[in-house]
Design a binder for these strands. Structure first.
Lengths: 224, 224
DNA sequence: ACAAAAGTGTTGCCACTACACCCATGG
DNA sequence: CCATGGGTGTAGTGGCAACACTTTTGT
């Protein structure tokens, strides 16, 4: 019984995933998702969070963790005993604050498009499932905010949607749609310095409402 | 490692679930979801289908099975060893053809509203999760058809949506919405006898397209 | 003829896309 | 003053809910 965790972040406008280099025998040297065995009497969710912190030194705070799917094909692990893995999906705003201070193993952020198809075990399949899931969740939950710090601008949030969905979104329409969404955003009144140095300063927002609850009116995936 | 299966059907206009009476010790005599231990080297999905047939004698054909969620709280089973269960969700048109010819245990269809809150183990939680999932799936997949035989009328299909969502749907609007949905229905040209004996005969349809794939345009949950 | 269920027409409303346009800042 | 990004206005389109209406059967 193991847990594997797919952690996503948006880095440089691209969807990135946290991967670790395996040190031990099955697939030694290959990249894999962080994860490991579930302790006796340990909650699955706790195991996922623990493995993540242990293997990657990621900041557990602000981490949105959710069960993704269980992978249990009898031949999914080369080792003699059967290994069933519960995969978790996580999203974090703290993409910078990882890798440092971990134990031995290397943990790095990599663009999803680059690692897809190269991972150990059946982790490619897990990653693909996670990617679909997170794209869906952006539509009908408030998950998108979990990619960002506690205060952010609409342009930053738009960047998240664009990175995950892989399409360009009309800034004006995105603005209206998100401002009018109920229990999603709250203005702080403050202004942020413009992104590229130039441009009008943006209004700063704060999340309101539960990130995993369903939205009354979804945010549809389209160019807008 | 176990699997539990939530099988839904629509009976007499209400969402019904298949439950079995437990014969053995933990929760003996109580109602529970069908399920059992996963065999060595057995695929999880296969285990779910096998347990279902063994315990309920249900017709495996035409059964839409999908992984729901994994329940692994350390104290979810009273027995000394830990039991992690992968829950599956199934939907069937063959609600009549069960119960008969099974081995010993009693398997019956019960309205979900009646059994909710009375099941053994954490099966109430599993049932609640399944109920939410199936309601969602009706919106953005073609799953609704899996409640019906290979040929059916739009009135029957509307009955499924009404039962699962617990609301009344305008027949005219439902008609148009489903007829215009792409890769969903195909007319057979035939006519069916009217439901209550009276009324105009209905056109008979056949499913087309994959039941689990996402719809291009969702069927929204509303009174219509 | 009447009731009941299937199916079609119609109207008003609202959300969304596309795109033009103003606002506020840095250089 | 120009470039750049933030934010608002607006017109056309399309989908949808509500409900009236026609069609086709059984009694």
């Amino acid at each position: 019984m193991t847990v594997d965790v797919v952690v996503f972040a948006v880095l440089d406008g691209a969807l990135a995933v946290l991967v670790v280099r395996r040190g031990e025998d099955p697939y030694a040297g290959r990249w894999a998702l962080p994860g490991g065995f579930v302790g006796d009497g340990e909650e699955l969710l706790d195991a996922a969070r623990r493995e993540l912190v242990e293997e990657t030194g990621i900041v557990g705070d602000g981490l949105a963790l959710e069960q993704l799917k269980t992978f249990g094909a009898p031949d999914r692990d080369r080792r003699p005993h059967r290994v069933v893995s519960v995969a978790y999906l996580a999203v974090t705003p703290h993409a910078e604050a990882t890798t440092a201070g971990t134990d031995a193993e290397e943990a790095v952020w990599r663009p999803v498009d680059e690692v897809a198809g190269t991972l150990a075990f059946d982790h490619d399949e897990i990653l693909a499932t996670a990617r679909e899931r997170v794209a869906s969740k952006l539509e009908y939950t408030r998950l998108g905010r979990s990619f960002l710090p506690p205060e952010f601008t609409l342009a930053q949030l738009r960047g998240v949607y664009e990175a995950v969905w892989g399409l360009d979104i009309d800034p004006g329409n995105f603005q209206r749609k998100l401002r009018s969404a109920r229990d999603f955003l709250e203005s702080t009144g403050a202004s942020a310095k413009p992104a590229g140095g130039r441009g009008r300063p943006a209004e700063v927002f704060r999340p309101i409402g539960e990130p995993f609850d369903k939205l009354a009116t979804p945010i549809f995936r389209s160019a807008m």
